[in-house]
Design a protein around this nucleic acid. Structure first.
Length: 266
DNA sequence: AATGGGACCTGCGCGC
DNA sequence: TGCGCGCAGGTCCCAT
């Protein structure tokens, strides 16, 4: 699922392809993914505009446009942006000057595309927690002390911290040797420091690898990201921990899967 | 206020 | 072999 490292990878891939390009035509094959305004106004509104800048906020991709508006794309679970496009899988096809086609694919139709006047004022954006890379350990510790939730669902909470999803929450907690069930405010100073450092380290390494290809995620070129081979716990239930050889467990937490090593993570 | 579960979707893998 | 069910998870929405 596209989390921060995957969306950042897509952002960087796209910068090389469509920065400065002008939309000449939009083909909406699945109107449901266009959340704002109507599919018709969305298409009409984009034609003639250039992509001035590409940003990422949490897991949201933002295309700043030449007239001051913005195209926002949330890939949710199965969204993809693929170039060159023009495939039959495409839910929306973006045509640019010079014949370039960018496809938005989305098997499960959870994705959300919007054309808005100001992306900063979207409710979703306003409620997002801080970017991990903008945090200091000290601020992170203060945030953790204000909550009493289990640490795993807290890391997944986009209002608490933005960009972390189910895969990286598992990998980060494993590397920090912290049990996902621990209440955030019971974490000791040194555990918070390790958690903070591992959060940054895992996300940075995952970006360097082009993200984790599990299920549908691919880079804009269609290639896989390479970080999945660094996964220590995600999807490894019943298999031995690489450190202690005890079996990785899968439990359900907040109605989604949590993978961890009960021996290494305390 | 904070937490939990269901809804939104589709394809896949499993068990019968 | 084939069918139906559960599961996958980002976010929203509602109930508790």
């Amino acid at each position: 699922m596209p989390e921060l490292p995957e969306v950042e990878t897509i952002k960087r891939d796209l910068e090389k392809i469509i920065l400065g390009e002008k939309f000449v035509k939009i083909c909406v094959h699945q109107a449901g993914v266009i959340r704002q305004p109507s599919a018709k106004l969305f298409s009409q509104g984009l034609v003639g505009l250039r992509v001035k800048n590409i940003l990422r906020r949490g897991k949201l991709l933002i295309f700043e446009l030449s007239n001051g508006q913005a195209l926002t794309i949330h890939l949710k679970m199965t969204g993809q942006l693929v170039y060159p496009g023009g495939s039959s899988k495409s839910r929306v096809a973006f045509y640019f000057t010079g014949g370039k086609i960018l496809d938005f694919n989305d098997q499960r139709l959870f994705g959300e595309l919007r054309l808005v006047d100001r992306w900063e004022t979207l409710k979703f954006v306003q409620e997002l927690g801080p970017e991990p890379f903008d945090l200091t350990c000290r601020v992170f510790q203060d945030m953790l002390l204000k909550k009493k939730t289990a640490i795993k669902p807290l890391l997944l909470d986009q209002k608490f911290i933005s960009g972390i999803g189910n895969i990286y929450a598992a990998e980060i907690l494993y590397r920090a040797k912290i049990n996902p069930l621990r209440s955030s405010k019971t974490l000791l100073q040194n555990e918070v420091e390790t958690l903070f450092c591992q959060t940054i380290a895992v996300l940075k390494m995952a970006i360097k690898c082009g993200g984790s290809s599990v299920d549908d995620y691919v880079r804009v070129s269609g290639e896989n990201g390479d970080y999945a081979r660094h996964h220590q716990v995600y999807g490894r239930q019943g298999r031995p921990c690489f450190v202690c050889k005890n079996l990785i467990q899968r439990i359900t937490q907040g109605s989604r899967g949590t993978y961890f090593c009960p021996h290494c993570q305390r």
